[in-house]
């Protein structure tokens, strides 16, 4: 599956069990209600499975917004295809 904002938003809503979350590319993970660092790891793991990519720790450390995750997933897929 190709990474998209709607696909990532869907993953986040599913993992946080909140279908009404308003999510944009600028949404900071830390600003999501009830956020915990563990949530990012579960979301990243789910995204890796959905988009068939794997992030390294340096990339993980740079994920602050939903847009960062989208960009990282797209970059990974492009690199894998090249």
């Amino acid at each position: 599956m190709r990474p998209s904002l709607s696909a990532i938003a869907s993953i986040i809503r599913h993992m946080l069990c909140d279908g009404s979350l308003a999510i944009t590319a600028d949404t900071q993970f830390a600003d999501l209600p009830g956020w915990d660092d563990m949530d990012l790891m579960r979301i990243v793991d789910e995204a890796e499975c959905h988009f068939d990519v794997q992030f390294n720790l340096t990339e993980f450390d740079r994920l602050a917004t939903v847009g960062d995750l989208l960009l990282a997933a797209v970059s990974k897929q492009v690199l894998a295809a090249a």
């Binding site: 790891m41 990243v44 720790l57 993980f60």
Partner: peptide
């Protein structure tokens, strides 16, 4: 967090997923 906690947790999550185990809030 970057060099111990996150890699360990990610490794556990990936292992559980690879073995068909749940990783959601309920599983925790």
């Amino acid at each position: 967090m970057t060099h111990v906690h996150t890699p360990l947790t990610l490794a556990v999550l990936r292992w559980r997923r690879a073995h068909g185990l749940p990783i959601g809030n309920a599983a925790q």
